[in-house]
Structures are given as structure tokens and as C-alpha cells.
Amino acid sequence: MAIDYDKLVNWKFDPIEQHYTSKDSILYALGVGVSMDPLDMDQLRFTYEEDQLALPTMAVVLAYPGFFLKQPEFGVDWVKILHGEQGIQIHKPLPAAGHVVGENRITEIIDKGEGKGALIFSERKVYDKPTGDLLCTLTSTTFARGDGGFGGPKIEAPKPHAVPDREPDSVVELPTLPQAALIYRLSGDFNPLHADPRVAEAAGFKAPILHGLATLGAAGHAILKDACGYNPDRFASLRLRFTSPVYPGETIVTEIWKDGQDVSFRSRVKERDVVVLNNGHAVVK
């Protein structure tokens, strides 16, 4: 089995429509650890329906196309794929409840060579259905570990953002709940790896791991808190690379460097001193 480059890169996705409610936005915020202190009024704006706001990082769960790479006609060895990078660009603040439509496409597939895997780049644009306004653009890089050498382009992949070689300007520690993955999965990612200890053990983990996009949400929370004063209107974009899994209940420590509107960051797990997100770059207004 090998990747069918022409079929995958030219695949026409059906638009994905989604109605989401205030409750969905609250559930997402709780899933990424907002309101661990229920008396924090800044965080309560995202987890209580009065004057409610939506987290900018909730964009990643809107109009999600599902695990499409599992389709056999694409020829992807889906068991060996990893989520490598994720980007979010916010064009208009997300409403706390709404009706959206997502348009998905594959933008490129890079063949790293036999035994070296392949990189699959995808893009999702999410529009407000009633007005047609573009709300956000999501970009994702999937590392297909078992698919190198299929005869596709061997162009150089974009270089990741380098965090500054100096002490961070600030550090934000955010705990996660032991049941964080069980909450986050209710936002749409039902992979049993994040819930069933037997599946996690078979995959080589000591316990179910937190969704990578939930870890992204914790880092996004740190940026929103430290660089935006909890004002989502100031959050313009974010991009990062996933480097290691998090176990629910661990503490995510995000180091932040500020250079005007450019914010660099990386996140590590306090308990194991392991970098879990790297090469982070955000733009704030």
C-alpha cells in the first residue's frame, strides 16, 4: 500500500456544517482546563453563560472533518500517523454559539523518502453560515511515519519557528484535571487512546494520554492570559509543533517570549520536565 498522491491532493471534501451552542463552548473551555479556579472572573467569562465568550483555540473543533485519512482509497498507513503541527488564524472573534460551515482541502504532500515518512499538509476554512464571514483558518501537518518513498514531491518542508535564545519574559503554569481527556473528547475526538487504559497500554503508554489539541488549548489559554489579558479580540494567530504527549493530571508550564505583537512560546510538563509543545509562535493585537 502506498499513498495515492493525485487522489489525496485533489480530493474534494464535502462542506461540513455544524451548529454549536453556548454549552458546547463551555464544555470545550472546561476540557482545556479553564476555570480550575472557579472564582476567577476572567476565566468565568468562558465557562458561564452570562456575557459568555468563546476561546479562540476552540476553532480547532469547529466543522472538523473527522479521521478522513483512514479511508483505504488514499493508501495512507493510518495506524502510524502523528499530528505534527497545528496552526490557527482568527479572522473574526468566534461567537459563543453559532452555525458554521467548514471547507477542507489537502494543500501538499511531501515525500521524505523510503523509511523517512511523508508530510501531509491540510487546511480548513470555517465560515459563519448566516453571514458568510470567514471566522478562522486552520492548518495542520500530519506526519505519516509509514509512507515515505511513494514517489511524491521531495521539496523541503517549511522550517519551524525558533524560540528566542534567552530567558523567557514570563512563565504560566496551568494544571490539568485527571479526567481532562474524558471531558475534552466530548468536543468531538473520540479516539479510545484518550479514554480506554487497555487501548493506551497496547499503544505503549502507561495510561490514556491527553489529546494533543487539548494541550494546545492549555498553551492557548496561557497566551490569552499572559499576552492578551483574557481578551479574545487580541488573539490573532497561533502555530506550534507537537513533541511529546501529556498525561491528564500533569501541570503544563508555558514559557513565553514577547517581541511586540510576536509571541514565542513552548510548553513542558512540570512533573517530568519534558517539552510537549515546541516552536510556538502567536500574534497578538
Rank of each mutant, 00 (worst) to 15 (best):
M1Q: 13
A2H: 07
L8R: 10
L8F: 00
F13A: 05
H19N: 11
L27V: 12
Y28H: 08
G31F: 12
G33H: 05
V34K: 01
V34P: 00
M36T: 12
D37P: 09
D42R: 06
D42M: 06
Q43F: 02
D51A: 11
D51L: 00
Q52N: 00
L53G: 01
A54P: 10
A54S: 15
A63T: 04
A63K: 01
P65V: 05
G66H: 11
L69P: 10
K70I: 13
E73V: 06
G75C: 11
G75N: 01
G75Y: 04
V76W: 00
L82D: 04
L82G: 00
G84F: 11
E85A: 05
Q86E: 14
I88G: 02
Q89V: 14
I90V: 11
P93D: 07
P93F: 15
P95Q: 09
A97E: 15
G98I: 01
H99E: 14
G102I: 08
N104M: 12
E108L: 02
E108H: 15
D111T: 03
G117T: 09
E123F: 06
V126Y: 09
Y127H: 14
K129D: 12
P130K: 10
P130G: 08
G132Y: 02
C136H: 01
L138I: 14
S140V: 02
T141G: 02
A144D: 11
A144H: 10
D147N: 15
G149N: 00
G149D: 04
G149K: 05
F150G: 00
F150Q: 02
G152Y: 10
G152I: 07
G152N: 14
P153T: 10
K154V: 03
A157L: 08
P158T: 02
P160A: 02
A162C: 05
V163I: 15
V171T: 14
P175H: 12
P175F: 06
Q179G: 02
Q179S: 13
L182W: 04
L182V: 01
R185F: 07
R185V: 12
L186C: 03
L186I: 13
S187H: 10
S187D: 12
F190Y: 12
D196P: 01
R198Q: 13
R198L: 10
R198N: 11
V199W: 11
A200K: 06
A202L: 08
A202Q: 06
K206R: 10
A207W: 07
P208M: 04
L210M: 13
G212D: 12
A214Y: 11
T215H: 09
T215E: 05
G220P: 04
L224K: 01
K225D: 13
Y230W: 15
Y230P: 00
P232R: 06
F235S: 11
A236K: 13
S237G: 06
S244M: 11
T251W: 14
E255R: 10
D259S: 09
D262S: 15
F265S: 02
R266A: 06
R268M: 12
V269F: 04
E271K: 00
V274R: 14
V275W: 10
A282K: 00
A282Y: 06
V283Y: 04
